[in-house]
Simulated scan of single mutants.
Amino acid sequence: MKKIITQLLIFASIALQSQINGKVVDGETKKPIPYCNIWIENKDIGTSSDENGIFKLETKEKNSILIFSAIGYKTTRKNWDANSSIIEMSPEEIILDEIVLDKTKKKNTILGKFKKSKINKFFGCGERPKIRARYFAFDKKINETPFLSEIQFYTMSDIKNAKFNVRLYEVDENGKPGNYLYDKNLIGYARKGNKLTTIDLSHLDILFPKKGFFISVEWFIIQENSYEYTYREEGSRKKMKAVAYDPSFGTIPSDADGNCWIFEKGKWNKILKNGDDDYSKKHRNKYTLLAIQLLLTN
Rank of each mutant, 00 (worst) to 15 (best):
E173V: 09
N165K: 00
F138V: 00
M156R: 11
I159W: 05
A137E: 14
K141G: 14
R128K: 14
P177D: 07
K163N: 05
T155P: 07
R167D: 12
E170W: 01
N165V: 05
G175W: 04
Y169C: 01
L148M: 15
G175R: 03
I159P: 07
Y154Q: 07
A162W: 03
D158V: 00
I142Y: 09
Y169M: 02
I151R: 03
P129G: 11
N174R: 10
I142P: 10
P146L: 10
L168T: 05
I142D: 06
E170F: 01
T145A: 10
E150Q: 15
F136D: 02
F164P: 02
S149N: 15
E144N: 14
E150K: 15
S157G: 09
E144Y: 09
I142C: 08
T145M: 04
Y154D: 08
S157M: 07
G124Y: 12
D172W: 04
K141P: 00
K163M: 13
A162I: 09
F147A: 05
E150H: 10
F138D: 06
N174F: 12
K141W: 00
E173C: 00
N165T: 03
D139L: 12
F136G: 04
K176I: 03
A162L: 08
D139C: 00
T145L: 04
G175N: 02
A133I: 04
T155I: 01
K163A: 09
S157T: 08
N174K: 14
A162Y: 05
K140Q: 14
N161Y: 11
P129S: 10
V171N: 01
S149H: 13
T145I: 06
L148P: 09
R134W: 00
V166A: 08
Y169W: 12
A137D: 14
G175H: 07
T145C: 11
K130D: 06
Y154V: 02
E150L: 15
Q152C: 12
D139I: 00
S149P: 00
M156H: 08
F164G: 02
D158Y: 10
F164C: 05
I151Q: 02
I131S: 09
Y135H: 14
D158A: 13
E144P: 00
F147S: 02
T155S: 15
A133W: 06
G124S: 15
K176A: 08
K130S: 13
A133S: 15
D158E: 14
E150R: 15
V171T: 11
P146R: 11
A137G: 05
S157F: 05
V171P: 01
K130L: 12
R167L: 11
R128M: 12
K130N: 06
D172K: 07
A162E: 06
A133T: 04
K140F: 11
P177M: 10
T155Q: 06
R128L: 13
V171G: 01
D158Q: 13
V166R: 05
Y135N: 10
D158M: 10
A162N: 07
Y154K: 04
N161C: 03
F153V: 02
V166G: 08
Y169T: 01
E150N: 15
F153L: 15
R132E: 06
Y154L: 15
R128H: 11
G175E: 02
M156C: 01
Y154R: 04
S157E: 06
V166Q: 07
R167C: 04
E127R: 13
